[in-house]
Nucleic acid binder design. Structure first.
Lengths: 237, 237
DNA sequence: TGTACATCAGTGAACGCGCGTTCACTGATGTAC
DNA sequence: TGTACATCAGTGAACGCGCGTTCACTGATGTAC
C-alpha cells in the first residue's frame, strides 16, 4: 500500500501503471509480505517497468517509447532498468512476448465458446484476434513487427507466437476432419484465415478503412470473409 | 552530367539515389537544358530529396529515416530542404503519395492483363499488391501507417490511396455483374479481398510466415485465398 | 544588348533537446556462523 | 539471537550523439527597362 502511494508521489502520470500493476499482482503472484515498508528497493521493478513500457508504447507507439520516460513513469533513475534488462530492445521484447500470451488466451477462449470445428468457432476466434489488435494497437504492431536483433529474447517471442498459431491450427483441423478434407490442406485453410484477420486488424488500427469504407464493422467483415472462404473450401473444392 | 559527378563526390553513398534520379528524370521530365553547369543551385533538389528519402526509408525504416542523413545523401546543407518542404513529416508524406501512385499503376496493369471480371484478373491484381509490398516494404508500411498530422498533405495521400482502391472496386464490379450478384455486395466482396492481400503483404514483409510456415509462397497463398473466397461468394451465397 | 535589381535557392553555424548507456557509489537485504 | 559480511538493487551525475529546425547570409538567376 505504501508502495503505491510512493509511486503516485514520484510520478503523477503513473495512475494507469498503478492500476495495471495491481491487476497483474492480483493475477500473477499474491504479495508474500503485504505490509512491506516503502524504501530504497522497489519490490518488483521488472514488472513495474514492463507495465510502464506497455502503457507508454500504447501511448507513443513502439518507436516513440523511450527508456527515460519509462523510468520517469516508474519513479526510478534512468540507470535502474539495466539491473533487469540488457537494453531497450530487451524490454520491448518482453512487452511483445506478453502480448502474444494475451492474444493466445483471448483467441482460445472465444474459440472454445463454440462447438469445436464449427464455422462459428473460427469466426469468433478471428473476431477476438481483431479485437485484441483494436484494444492494444501499438503492442499488436510490435508483436508482428520485424525485430532488429536475433537472440534468445527473440526466440522467446517466436515460441509464444507459435503457440498462438496453434490455436488456429487446432480449430482448422477440427473443421477439416468433420468435413473429411485431407490433412495436407490444413495450412491451405489456416494461412488464408490468418491473412483475413491480420489484414482486417492492420487496416483497422491504421484507420485505412476510414478513407474508403468508413462504415466498416470489423466483426461483420471477419464474419463475411471467413464464412465466404470456408464455404468456398468446403463446398466447391 | 557534371551534376551527377558533383553528387558522387559530395556523398559516396549516393549511388542508388543517382540511379533512381536518372530513372525518374527519364520518366518524368527530359531536362530542358541538358548541358547545364554544375554550381550553387541544384536544379531539382525537391526531386533529389524525395528520392533520397525513399531510398533511406527503405534502408532504415520509416522511423529511422532522418532529415540530416537525407541531406548528406543529396549533398546539400541541412537547411536546404526547408525551401521545398514544410518539415520532416511533409517530406515523408511525399514519399507515401508516390508509393500509392506506383501501387495503383502496378495493380491496374496486372489486373488488365486478364479478362475483365475474371477470377484470374482479381488474383493477379492481388499478387501485384503483395509484390509491391515485398519490393518496397518500408514505403508500403509508411503508406498505410497512421499519420500524425492531418493537413493537405495527408488529404493528398488519402486521395491517392482512394484511386488505388478504385482499381479493386472496378474489378469487383465486373466480377459481380458477370455473375448477376447484387450491387450492394460490392464492398462485401472488395473488403475481404483487400484484407487477404493486405494481410499477406504485412505478414510477408514482417517475416511472420517464417516462424510458423516458412515454405509459404505468397503468390500461391493469394491465389488459394482469393479463389476460395470468390467461389464461396459466387457459388453458395 | 546591357544593366539594375528583385527574387530564388542555396550555405554553414548554431540552438536546445532528449536519448541510451555507463560509472562509481551506497543503502537494503539475506545468510552463515 | 546477534553479528559480520556478501550480494543485490537502487542512485545520480555524466558521457557523447544525432536530431530537427532556425538564423542571417550570399551566390545565382530571371526580368523590366
Amino acid at each position: 500500500m505504501l508502495l503505491i502511494v510512493t509511486l503516485r508521489v514520484n510520478s503523477p502520470n503513473s495512475e494507469l501503471f498503478v492500476v495495471k500493476r495491481l491487476m497483474s499482482e492480483n493475477i500473477a503472484q499474491p504479495p508474500a509480505e503485504p505490509a512491506k515498508k516503502a524504501g530504497y528497493h522497489h519490490g518488483d521493478l521488472k514488472e513495474a517497468l514492463t507495465c510502464a513500457a506497455e502503457a507508454l508504447i500504447e501511448t507513443k507507439g513502439p518507436e516513440g517509447f523511450s527508456m527515460a520516460e519509462c523510468c520517469r513513469m516508474a519513479g526510478v533513475s534512468t540507470a535502474a532498468p539495466y539491473r533487469h534488462f540488457e537494453d531497450r530492445e530487451d524490454l520491448v521484447k518482453q512487452v511483445a512476448a506478453r502480448g502474444f500470451e494475451a492474444l493466445r488466451v483471448a483467441t482460445k477462449t472465444r474459440r472454445d465458446s463454440h462447438p469445436p470445428g464449427s464455422v462459428d468457432s473460427i469466426v469468433a476466434m478471428g473476431q477476438a484476434y481483431v479485437r485484441f489488435a483494436e484494444s492494444s494497437p501499438a503492442v499488436f504492431r510490435l508483436m508482428f513487427a520485424k525485430h532488429k536483433r536475433m537472440d534468445e529474447g527473440h526466440q522467446a517471442i517466436h515460441e509464444t507466437g507459435g503457440t498462438c498459431f496453434m490455436v488456429l491450427l487446432e480449430a482448422v483441423d477440427a473443421f477439416r476432419e468433420q468435413r473429411g478434407l485431407s490433412a495436407t490442406k490444413t495450412l491451405d485453410i489456416a494461412l488464408p484465415l490468418w491473412t483475413i484477420v491480420h489484414g482486417t486488424a492492420c487496416l483497422l488500427i491504421d484507420r485505412d478503412f476510414d478513407v474508403v469504407a468508413p462504415e466498416t464493422d470489423p466483426d461483420d467483415l471477419v464474419r463475411i470473409a471467413t464464412e465466404g472462404f470456408l464455404s468456398g473450401i468446403a463446398g466447391v473444392n
